[in-house]
């Protein structure tokens, strides 16, 4: 557990000290919002989904057993909220055939992704990232922007670390294919 005081706060909130929930809001609202804003297609809905995440967390607080850190649990709720919001809007993401991903050269991909001063490529990259689905965007956001370790990402998305690694490699390839399409 990252913050052992959190389990005490949760117990106190459940005992009726509702005002202590503001501690969690101060601690995590910006991080949760910045994750949601990156993974959902409509940026305007991000604040509403952040609110929904915190409301759901408050209502389910009694189910938090402390098996993972509170932040991991909260991120999981945020991810599921974003997924269901995207499903409701019935957004279709581009499908890329596996054979296309297999043909991507690792070396070429490394060279493209290491260069960060080519404006045209960066624009292509942004467009490619915006075409990824919610799970893929979550993976790269947590890994690259938030710098979360693979084990924690796996815990958040309820997957195995090996599965997360494989998916990250696939997302890289997909970004490359979308860039060069």
């Amino acid at each position: 557990m990252e913050n052992p005081d959190e389990i005490i706060y949760i117990k106190r909130i459940l005992d009726g000290e509702t005002n202590l929930y503001s501690i969690f809001l101060e601690r995590y609202s910006r991080t949760i919002h910045s994750l949601i804003v990156r993974i959902i297609p409509s940026k305007e809905d991000a604040e509403e989904l952040t609110q929904d995440t915190f409301m759901k967390a408050f209502r389910k607080l009694d189910t938090f057993k402390g098996e993972c850190s509170f932040s991991t649990w909260l991120f999981r709720i945020a991810y599921n909220t974003a997924i269901s919001a995207t499903r409701k809007k019935k957004i279709i993401f581009p499908f890329i055939d596996d054979s296309m991903l297999e043909n991507v050269s690792e070396e070429l991909m490394d060279t493209v992704f290491e260069e960060d001063d080519n404006e045209h490529r960066l624009q292509q990259l942004e467009e490619a990232i915006s075409k990824l689905n919610v799970e893929e965007k979550t993976l790269i956001t947590l890994y690259y922007t938030d710098g979360k370790p693979i084990a924690q990402i796996a815990e958040m998305l309820e997957q195995t670390p090996d599965n997360v690694k494989i998916k990250l490699f696939r997302v890289r390839k997909k970004i490359y294919v979308l860039m060069t399409k």
Partner: peptide, 17 residues
């Protein structure tokens, strides 16, 4: 070391809270 992906993700930030 995928600096380009990190930079692109940073620019994708939307409105703040």
């Amino acid at each position: 070391q995928d600096k380009a992906i990190i930079k692109a993700l940073k620019t994708l930030e939307g409105p703040t809270l």
